[in-house]
């Protein structure tokens, strides 16, 4: 039987490896991207799609919150940066900063609340976005949704590992973020290319 990593697509082939997947230690992580064992699904099983409720689609109708507006504007700033237009980039940054300074603060007590949030988002907004994008044949939106979804799964996996192993795990580990897609990698040796968006490893930035 084969198992595939939901994040980077690494395939664990029991036949080749000689060790049944179920016998791998719980601490075993994906050789491709470092995700937890729980991120693997058996290959033949067609993944059960969550049924998407139409109700939550209305959520998108709301005006964006200040923090989301800040993201829209920091994105436009990056767009200017790519066009080598530093002046307009700085102006868009001002707008982004304005909205950030008007954003609300998080009230979560601990990282478990963040984990709950991530799990809830994975069940609702991600499948809804996939549905809307594929029904409208929007491949760009499908791409962005896919990258964000994989990155989200990794965050879920890292939070779950932190809950089990705590500070000891992170004490001597380096934490990297792909500056293109936001994929988080923990470990000393970066993969040659980002497991999600495939940019070369020098695009990763160290978090200190």
């Amino acid at each position: 039987m084969k198992y595939v990593c939901a994040i980077c697509g690494y395939v664990y082939d029991e036949e080749k490896e000689g060790v049944p997947f179920s016998e791998l230690a719980e601490s075993w992580t994906c050789p491709g991207c470092g995700a937890e064992k729980a991120m693997f699904d058996p290959v033949q099983e067609t993944a059960e799609k969550e049924t998407v409720s139409a109700a939550a689609a209305d959520d998108g109708l709301r005006a964006l919150s200040p923090r989301a507006m800040s993201m829209v504007f920091s994105n436009l700033a990056r767009g200017c940066q790519k066009q080598y237009r530093p002046e307009e980039e700085a102006l868009f940054r001002k707008l982004s900063d304005y909205y950030l300074s008007h954003s609300s603060e998080g009230a979560a007590e601990d990282e478990k609340e963040l984990a709950a949030l991530v799990s809830a988002h994975l069940k609702t907004f991600f499948p809804q976005a996939e549905k809307a994008a594929s029904e409208n044949g929007d491949r760009g939106a499908l791409r962005a949704r896919l990258w964000a979804n994989k990155t989200e799964l990794m965050i879920q996996s890292l939070l779950s590992r932190y809950e089990k192993e705590g500070e000891a795990w992170l004490e001597n580990s380096r934490i990297w973020v792909c500056s293109v897609c936001g994929f988080i990698f923990i470990g000393d040796r970066l993969p040659a290319v980002c497991p999600v968006c495939k940019v070369p490893d020098w695009k990763f930035e160290l978090v200190d």
Binding site: R62, F126, K131, A132, R145
Partner: peptide, 10 residues
């Protein structure tokens, strides 16, 4: 698509 993506941005 914009609605669904906006919800995701949120």
């Amino acid at each position: 698509v914009c609605f669904a993506l906006n919800a995701l941005i949120e």
